[in-house]
């Protein structure tokens, strides 16, 4: 599967993709789908095999992460502003972390990518062509894995971790319902529906996230193997 590296659109001005030799692997899925656990397992596995691994995710840029967290705390930004704020955060990591790491031959594990950002915005009424234009700067990953877990299960996992439901992950800003439970289930279902729509466009692999962690890891490893092995 050694296709040449491309951007979704025109990409980043002045950045050539020819020397981006590493691999970009994206893990998508809602909070509670086991992303962090899987990324920890995968990192260990990859490093044991001698691969250099770089991690990126949402809200992790040097440029705006702090302000973004602050803005979300106060819930003062409109969906469009928040969307562009996240796009800035993404672009900063793309240029300062993802691209340099790929150039150095790293395997970049992205704890979510543009698809989560797009899906969240679509659920809040943003139109897909606008989002696609904004994210035409993004690199096409080598592999996108979507961890699918039923909303009810996600909800249980939240509670088991002795955490209250998160305002944003419950879609409370949208105003589906005053009941956090109803809002959570509705929001997560909408997100999944949107992901299915995006899947039809971007073709990512859906992984059954309801299994025990080790079974999921084996599934992920098989798929990653196919992408990173030199004769793959």
């Amino acid at each position: 599967m050694n296709r040449p590296r491309t951007f979704y659109g025109k990409g980043i001005p002045g950045v050539a993709t020819g020397d981006l030799k590493g691999k970009l692997i994206v893990l998508e899925g809602p909070d509670g789908s086991g992303r962090s656990t899987q990324i920890a397992f995968l990192t260990e596995w990859l490093e044991r095999r001698g691969h250099a691994v770089e991690h990126v995710g949402l809200k992790r840029s040097t440029l705006v992460a702090e302000e973004l967290a602050e803005a979300k705390q106060g819930n003062v930004l409109s969906p469009r502003t928040l969307s562009l704020f996240y796009a800035t955060d993404f672009a900063d990591q793309l240029e300062h972390r993802i691209i340099p790491a790929l150039r150095a031959g790293f395997i970049v594990l992205a704890d979510r990518y543009i698809y989560t950002l797009m899906a969240r915005d679509m659920v809040r009424g943003a139109d897909l062509p606008w989002l696609q234009s904004v994210y035409s700067i993004a690199l096409v990953p080598d592999l996108v894995l979507y961890l699918r877990v039923a909303p009810q299960k996600l909800m249980e996992r939240y509670i088991y971790r002795a955490r209250e439901l998160d305002y944003w992950e419950s879609g409370m800003d949208i105003g589906y319902s005053w009941s956090w439970y109803d809002s959570f289930i509705r929001y997560q279902s909408e997100l999944h529906r949107t992901f299915s729509k995006l899947q039809a466009i971007y073709g990512f692999a859906t992984i059954n996230g309801m299994r025990v962690p080790r079974a999921i890891t084996r599934d992920l490893q098989t798929r990653i193997e196919a992408v990173i092995s030199p004769n793959g």
């Binding site: 001005p13 705006v64 562009l84």
Partner: peptide, 13 residues
């Protein structure tokens, strides 16, 4: 830290 892309995005935000 700003590149043309992030410069543009942050101003649009």
């Amino acid at each position: 830290l700003l590149t043309p892309t992030t410069f543009s995005l942050i101003h649009c935000t």
